[in-house]
């Protein structure tokens, strides 16, 4: 049984669906059925996010296949992703949409 879920193939965060202690493997399944696991490097509370790849400071955090914010510092694979390392950014989505 997986202890995490990832929503879209291009997401760089997954969601813990059980509490995952530091050092434990988080396993999750991609929409195409491909199974993957990463070691979380800190305790991840149930329903909180962790990085499934390294996310450099300033790059987008992607969940649901969409931007949910930007990394406010470098985030390593398996790190907790939350308000301490993510900034909310208002994008002009109407402009983006009409391009």
């Amino acid at each position: 049984m997986d202890n995490a879920v990832i929503i879209e193939a291009k997401d760089n965060v997954a969601v813990a669906i059980e509490p995952i202690p530091a050092g434990v493997r988080a396993s999750f399944c991609y929409p195409d059925g491909k199974q993957r696991a990463v070691n979380v490097c800190e305790d991840i509370a149930i329903y909180h996010k962790f990085a499934v790849c390294d996310i450099p400071c300033g790059s987008k955090i992607i969940k649901y296949g969409e931007h949910i914010g930007e990394a406010s510092r470098d985030i390593l694979t398996g790190e907790h992703v939350h308000v301490h390392n993510v900034a909310s950014v208002r994008e002009n989505l109407e402009k983006e949409e009409s391009l």
């Binding site: 909180h48 955090i61 949910i68 939350h82 308000v83 909310s88």
Partner: peptide, 10 residues
């Protein structure tokens, strides 16, 4: 575990 308004909205 919700981090940003964008995440909440999506």
């Amino acid at each position: 575990g919700i981090t940003t308004l964008e995440e909440k909205s999506l």
